[in-house]
């Protein structure tokens, strides 16, 4: 094909993206080498001091990163399984198909920073409906005030909101599947279970990988949910990386240090996502 055309297609988008982003990225790297804070706002050069501090003297950042990994992987796994299952269930004949499909799409359309306030009232341990309902069974779980249950609450909210994202992608994927493999399977008399394992799932593997990766990226930025539900508490039990960076940056105004943490986070994420993509491709596509 003609060589020039491909650039005409690609470059407008690429140039706009790079044009808008090049300054912020370079600035962030430069910022990470400065001591910019509330008292001394400026791009002085302090070398790798911030990086040394991050790597040798800040267990809180690393704890928050591992907590984030746990939360992101758990929520994305749940979203994928539930989203795929739901999509499969409303794919074909079911009553009120359209109603369910639209309904399942709605949660992701709510603004997290507002919807999480509703969830906070929902989980409110003495004034909320959840414990009011559970009191029938005589239990009052401390949804937001126990370190372990607070994590569960955050997972519940994240799964509620973002399963619809998986659901839509999986449903769109299912609806665009070619019919021939299914006809062949029907001729062979395969059971529904076998049909799913040998026909549906392999065909869905590429879109699954894409969906999981983008969700991992988004889930790793989890911030509003944590901020509104628990502010990272009780103690530090629900702090995630972006919450940590938010506190350091826009609360304590240690902008230089926050940039260091962000840039480190960016690098770690790019490396781990590359690995995850490779592993997923291997496992799901059986390459």
């Amino acid at each position: 094909m003609n060589f020039k055309h491909k650039y005409v297609f690609l470059l407008p988008g690429l140039i706009v993206l790079i044009g808008i982003l090049i300054f912020p990225i370079i600035f962030t790297v430069r910022l990470s080498l400065s001591g910019w804070n509330s008292f001394n706002p400026g791009l002085d050069f302090i070398g790798f001091k911030n990086y040394v501090r991050l790597f040798t003297d800040d267990p809180r950042f690393w704890q928050s990163f591992f907590r984030l990994s746990f939360l992101a992987i758990t929520t994305v796994f749940l979203q994928y399984v539930i989203g795929f299952a739901l999509a499969h269930m409303v794919w074909k004949d079911i009553k009120f198909k359209r109603f369910f499909r639209v309904l399942f799409l709605i949660p992701m359309m709510t603004t997290p920073v507002i919807m999480t306030v509703i969830w906070r009232t929902f989980f409110h341990e003495s004034l909320g409906p959840l414990n009011d309902f559970l009191s029938i069974f005589g239990v009052q779980p401390p949804w937001l005030s126990s370190p372990s249950l607070a994590k569960v609450s955050i997972i519940v909210v994240e799964v509620w909101q973002w399963t619809s994202f998986m659901f839509l992608l999986m449903l769109a994927g299912l609806l665009s599947l070619p019919k021939e493999p299914f006809l062949a399977a029907a001729v062979d008399g395969a059971s529904p279970f076998k049909k799913f394992i040998y026909v549906t799932f392999p065909l869905m593997a590429p879109i699954s990988i894409g969906a999981i990766v983008i969700r991992l990226i988004e889930a790793s930025k989890i911030m509003d949910t944590v901020f509104v539900l628990t502010s990272g508490g009780p103690g530090t039990s629900t702090e995630t990386s972006s919450f940590f960076i938010f506190i350091k940056g826009l609360r304590e105004f240690q902008m230089g240090y926050a940039a260091t943490a962000s840039f480190t986070y960016l690098i770690i994420m790019i490396i781990s996502l590359t690995i995850i993509v490779k592993v997923l491709t291997k496992v799901l596509m059986r390459e």
């Binding site: 300054f23 912020p24 990225i25 600035f27 962030t28 910022l31 983008i214 990226i217 988004e218 790793s220 930025k221 911030m223 990386s241 972006s242 960076i245 938010f246 940056g249 826009l250 902008m255 926050a258 940039a259 962000s262 986070y265 960016l266 994420m269 790019i270 996502l273």
Partner: peptide, 11 residues
Amino acid sequence: RIMPPVVLSIP
């Protein structure tokens, strides 16, 4: 989309 928005705010 990986970059946390907080730090991008200043640039």
